[in-house]
Every structure is written in C-alpha cells, then in structure tokens.
C-alpha cells in the first residue's frame, strides 16, 4: 500500500536524496533535457488539455521521461518534468511515488514482472517466479549484480485467460511454460539494449 509505504520508508525516495543520486549523467539538472523528438511528443500531449490544465499531462510525460532516462525517475528527472509542466517539484514526486509503474530506483536493463494474482496463481505463477529466481540467482524485487535483470511480482495485468503471464518492459508474454521463460531469459541475456518501456 503506497501511502503507508511512504511513511515507513521516508518520503519519498527510499533514502536516495538528490546528493546521493546514483546515476552518473543525471546528477545535475542542467544535463537533463528531452530529445527534440520527445519534447515534441510531450508538448503535443499538453495540448490535449484545456489551457491551464497542463498538469493533466503529468502521467504521460513521466512515462516519456522514464523511457528516455534509463527506465527510472531520478530526482533531477522529476524536477525537469516539473519545470516542463510548470509544476512544483512536490506535485511530481507525490504522483511518481503513488503509481506502481514509476520506478524511483534504477532497474535492470531487462525488467521482468510476473503476475501472481488469482488466475495466474491458479495456473502456476509460483513455479514461474521460483524458476526465475533460481535461474537469475536473485529474489523477487532484486536486480542482478551485472544490472541486466530486475525481477518483480505484480498484480493482475489483464491476461488472466492466458495465464501464467509476465511482462518484459512493455511487452506481454502469455501462456508461459518454463521453456518459454528460458528462451526469453536467454534472448535478453544476449541483448545489449534496454527492454522497451513504452
């Protein structure tokens, strides 16, 4: 539950203040800027809303930011989004910390999210999670030391009829078998790029 989670762990960045920001290129705001293409997309999004309601573009623009800056939202990235939408930084932080798809810490290049809710559990999701934990040598919620894989469990993703399922980045993988999982891990192990975020 997100609300408590904030209180318990310290609002809002799980011990990662501005000065300790882990990411190299993002420690100062001046280097953070959308590419021209992304900036145009963001501006198009803002135009969907009546004048003065640009805050409504916050969720889509945070998705763009996450896709552009290594799959997670650092404080400087959020501050940049705030300036872009003419918001106070707190308005961005409180939203980013509420929604489960926004990562407030770095994630591996390949983000694996296995659904573990009822229908998937009924069809063996626990086996998939266990298998991945063994294969990757990490527990759910962790990232491999080489930064290649992050493994998470998530709540129902609307693929209950094709369970068990997992997402890699923004892609659905359904009707999973252990062989399919093995093939996907192998494929991603050999890839240099980051899983497609959006």
């Amino acid at each position: 539950m997100k609300f408590l989670h904030l209180c318990a762990r310290g609002f809002p960045f799980r011990g990662q203040g501005l000065s300790q920001g882990r990411s190299n290129k993002m420690t100062t705001t001046q280097y953070i800027k959308f590419s021209d293409e992304t900036l145009a997309l963001a501006q198009r999004t803002i135009k969907r809303y009546p004048a003065g309601r640009q805050k409504s573009a916050l969720l889509p623009v945070l998705h763009l930011a996450q896709a552009e800056f290594d799959g997670w939202l650092s404080v400087p990235v959020m501050d940049y989004v705030a300036s872009l939408l003419e918001l106070q930084p707190i308005e961005v932080y409180e939203v980013a910390s509420f929604y489960s798809m926004f990562n407030l810490e770095p994630v591996g290049k390949c983000l694996i999210e296995v659904c573990h809710t009822s229908s998937c559990w009924l069809m063996g999701a626990d086996d998939i999670v266990k298998h991945l934990e063994q294969k990757l040598g990490i527990k759910k919620g962790q990232t491999t030391p080489d930064g290649k894989f992050t493994l998470k469990t998530v709540e129902c993703l609307g693929s209950c009829g094709t369970a068990p399922m997992m997402m890699i980045g923004a892609d659905f993988h359904e009707n999973l078998t252990l062989e399919k999982v093995d093939a996907l891990v192998k494929e991603w192990d050999g890839k240099g790029e980051r899983s497609r975020y959006c």
Partner: peptide
Amino acid sequence: CYVQIGAGAY
C-alpha cells in the same frame, strides 16, 4: 477524443 494512459493503480 484523446487517450490518457495510467501508470499502474487499480
């Protein structure tokens, strides 16, 4: 008509 995307919250 526009489509707005959420970010993971039932």
